[in-house]
Simulated assay, not measured.
Amino acid sequence: MKTTSLFACVTALLIILCSRASNGQLSPTFYAQSCPVALTIVRIAVLQAVAKEKRMAASLLRLHFHDCFVNGCDGSILLDDTSTFTGEKTAGPNANSVRGYEVIDTIKSRLEAVCGGVVSCADIVTIAARDSVVLLGGPSWIVQLGRRDSTTASLSGANSNLPSPFSDLSTLISAFQAQGLSTKDMIALSGAHTIGQARCTTFRSRVFNDTNIDSAFATSVQANCPSNGGDGNLSPLDLVTPNFFDNTYYKNLRSQKGLLHSDQELFNGGSADGLVTTYSTNPITFFSDFAAAMVNMGNISPLTGTSGQVRTNCRKVN
């Protein structure tokens, strides 16, 4: 099947799928009257950011994930520390790692100029994640909207809720179940690692110590991640097609070429092996399941109605 036909089939399926997946409190047309240009403004800004740096697509996708796993998709990760407030940015999984804050700032300032006080930072992060995936060739889905922004954040939640790159399979399953996500969601969402890069500190122990790793792959990665030093050196999570959203991540796992220990745990003789095999051979199924899982993740404990606020500056409460 030609790529364009594949994407067309997936998109048609996802329109049906995601329309049925509505949270009930959220709506894809939430800004249709109050800010009809909202999605266009976000899409253009993401396009500009990704055109400048391909890696930013993965960063914006990860930003959404790290937001939603701490007290829900409420924009709490965007809050800066102050003299009286400690947010989530300095948490272990986020510090010197999570990126894209400036892109969100740009989008917010453009939206405020047109629709002041209308579009939440939490929704901006959610839309930007979808648009980032699409820009690198991945599936699209209908984004549910209407989240409001938190006035608090949780450093402890960021340190405890976000799965580690050193996690085993059971720990990964538990971390996602704690957020109301299934094992299938977890395996599909892990496919986000088909794009983006990781720091040497997150995979050094794997490429030097793990036994379930292709030896040639380990050697090639060690060249940029020595046993000592180079902690901040980067390596693509998918060495084959690092800037294209596809199912190569799962093919890599079947060849024992997962970069992170937690990646390879998805194909290591456990309960996730079957679905990894399916995704490695059927990109349509992966795209469909990934999109559905993104909708599910975006529905984690949103603030709606009069809860929270719509921040005018995503870095601080009003």
Rank of each mutant, 00 (worst) to 15 (best):
S140G: 14
M56P: 02
R148H: 12
I104Q: 09
S140A: 11
T126L: 13
L39T: 14
R99H: 10
G138I: 01
D149W: 00
L155A: 11
G146Y: 11
I104V: 14
P139S: 04
A178V: 00
L78I: 06
P165H: 06
R62T: 15
D81Q: 07
L135W: 09
A129C: 09
L111V: 00
L145I: 05
F176S: 09
Q144V: 03
V134A: 15
S164E: 12
S83Y: 03
Y101E: 03
S132I: 10
A158E: 03
E53F: 00
S160R: 06
G117Y: 04
T90L: 07
G92E: 11
L135V: 04
S150R: 05
L135F: 12
S167M: 06
G117W: 03
P93S: 06
L39Y: 08
Q179Y: 02
P93L: 07
A175Y: 04
S83E: 11
R43N: 15
S83L: 13
I173E: 10
V119S: 08
A95L: 13
K89E: 15
S59Y: 11
A129N: 14
P163D: 07
N159K: 12
A45M: 09
S174Q: 08
A49L: 04
K54W: 01
A129Q: 08
Q179N: 10
D168M: 01
T86Y: 07
L172N: 09
E88K: 01
I124C: 08
I77T: 10
N96L: 13
A158K: 01
I142C: 02
I142T: 14
S83C: 06
T106C: 05
N94S: 13
R110C: 02
Q177P: 01
D81V: 09
S109W: 08
A95Q: 10
R130C: 02
R62K: 14
T152Q: 04
S156D: 12
T151P: 03
V46W: 05
A113M: 09
F65Y: 13
P163V: 01
F69W: 13
N71W: 14
A178D: 08
L172V: 07
I124P: 07
C115W: 10
I44M: 06
F69K: 05
K89V: 12
D123F: 02
N94L: 11
S167K: 02
R43H: 12
S174L: 07
G72Q: 08
F65Q: 11
A58L: 04
P139V: 01
A49T: 00
S97Q: 15
E88G: 00
S59T: 02
D105K: 14
L60D: 01
S170G: 04
W141P: 00
V133A: 15
L47G: 11
R147Y: 11
V103Y: 10
